[in-house]
Write a protein that binds this DNA or RNA. Structure first.
Lengths: 111, 111
DNA sequence: TTATATTATCGTAATATTGCAATATAATAA
DNA sequence: TTATTATATTGCAATATTACGATAATATAA
């Protein structure tokens, strides 16, 4: 098999899983951190920042674009990338919805 | 290849990616949500909740245990699972560190 | 036009993930 | 002891992911 049975789960569960997958590689985490810190459009230097080959980075960028976390516009010969603020907020909320579900079980230690 | 080049990235980047991987499957999201909502020890019923075979769920539980998000203790014949509060806090902070890095670029729309 | 520079896509090899049947293990009950 | 019940492990097939060389596409410069 090797194929996820998405039909068994809710849209929210599948959405969160899909987004989490975008964060599930250190190169993509690094790209996101770099764009967050720069807080502006970045072109090119990503390839020099990370130690991966250009096609590999291009592929990671494609995945991040696919889920909408980043956006890129052609700027002459190169492409400028930055965080998509609206989608970023959405993603943040997706995770926070889960994180805030937790409340410490009071007066009883669980297992 | 197919193998992630972890040596190129920081411990934090690899850690976040590893944790994100735990969230990167709807079945594991469902398990986490179920434990969060129950807010107590759950045994067994997970297999009935999700529509996956018992070995498959056992495998997902193993992965969640491996990164420390959940813990299980043997309770007679069955096993009680619950969220690990300390690790949950850590994971929450890992993500929040990233989310709070973002500040809306003021007075300039990016790309 | 022909170069040059930057990014994207294709093709492919290596490895990882998902799912489950079969089986094993562990704890209690009879 | 021998059931029974619940969970874990093994082994394997199908599919997905990661990485990169080769090459294509795109935009500007000469």
């Amino acid at each position: 098999m090797g194929v996820t049975k998405t039909e068994l789960f809710t849209a929210e569960q599948n959405d969160l899983a899909q987004v989490a997958k975008a964060f599930a590689h250190p190169a993509r985490v690094a790209i996101i951190q770099y764009l967050l810190k720069a807080n502006t459009c970045i072109n090119g230097n990503l390839v020099q920042e990370l130690g991966l080959a250009q096609p590999t980075i291009s592929q990671h960028l494609k995945e991040l674009k696919a889920i909408g976390i980043i956006q890129g516009t052609t700027e002459g010969v190169s492409v400028s990338y930055c965080i998509n603020p609206e989608r970023w907020e959405e993603v943040k909320n997706l995770f926070n919805n889960l994180f805030t579900l937790f409340t410490t079980p009071s007066g009883r230690d669980c297992c």
